[in-house]
Amino acid sequence: MKHSLRQHSVLPGFGLTLGITLVYLSVIVLIPLSAAFIKTAALSWVQFWSVVTAPRVVASYKLSFGASLLAAAINTVFGLIVAWVLVRYSFPGKRLVDALVDLPFALPTAVAGIALTALYAPNGWIGQYLQEWWGLKVAYTPLGVLVALVFIGLPFIVRTVQPVLEDLEGELEEAAATLGASRWQIFTRVIFPTLLPALLTGFALAFARAVGEYGSVVFIAGNMPMISEITPLIIITKLEQYDYTGATAVAVVMLVASFVLLLLINFLQWFSRKRNPAK
């Protein structure tokens, strides 16, 4: 039976380790996740549809997905610049900066949330100048959601682009320069196409993370229904009102969106491996 599933090997421990893996995966991840789908299956299609398309819920999708897209786009531009500067140039403190780029991965989201809120509040270090100079309110508005999502998404772009940039072959650029291309032409025609798969992967990773983000956003968003309420918060609100079915229905919509994104990310990574077989 086992031999039909796997190729023969002299190494021991296949049954034990695969057994532990499958049991643990099922107990911790698969069975609880399936509970969300089974719970939702108790709803009729009409009931489900009316829960997940209620105006307040739809407004939250627009904010969550819109702000996540915008944050990922901002991070793609600045993340590319940061990766470029870290790989190509030298300046004092570069290694420290390089290490700190991962801060959003390591800093708990609640800490990031209160720090960003205090900074961008109307009386905060940054917020007071934005208010004074441009009349811009960031904290407690959808703009605050965007700021929090830019914070948590930044390392995804930098860390996917950086290794590709490091492996870039200098010969191609030299050849292009010898043939008379300007630096800008070399960037747009030679470097950028090579980086594109990594940029798209980083974009998708940052977007996927941002859509589900909760901790850093709830503090800064202000959480006004229809205006600055993100979808994960809708789930929490419904749970606090003991509306388990409603919370689960919205969760299923988000889960399906995340699974589609996960497939897309896997495809992008497969695609970029095919483009750069050396890696």
Binding site: L5, R6, Q7, S9, L11, G13, F14, L18, T21, L25, V29, L30, P32, L33, A35, A36, A208, V211, G212, E213, Y214, G215, P232, L233, I235, I236, L239, A247, T248, A251, M254, L255, S258, F259, L261, L262, N266
Partner: peptide, 28 residues
């Protein structure tokens, strides 16, 4: 260390918790 069928599916499933919103992780 072993070759078996369904390996890439298993790897994807192991990564699954990273693409689930933390709020949903609590909910389930």
């Amino acid at each position: 260390k072993f070759e078996f069928r369904g390996k890439s599916l298993l790897i994807t499933l192991i990564d699954l918790p990273f693409s689930v919103s933390p709020v949903i992780a609590g909910l389930i």
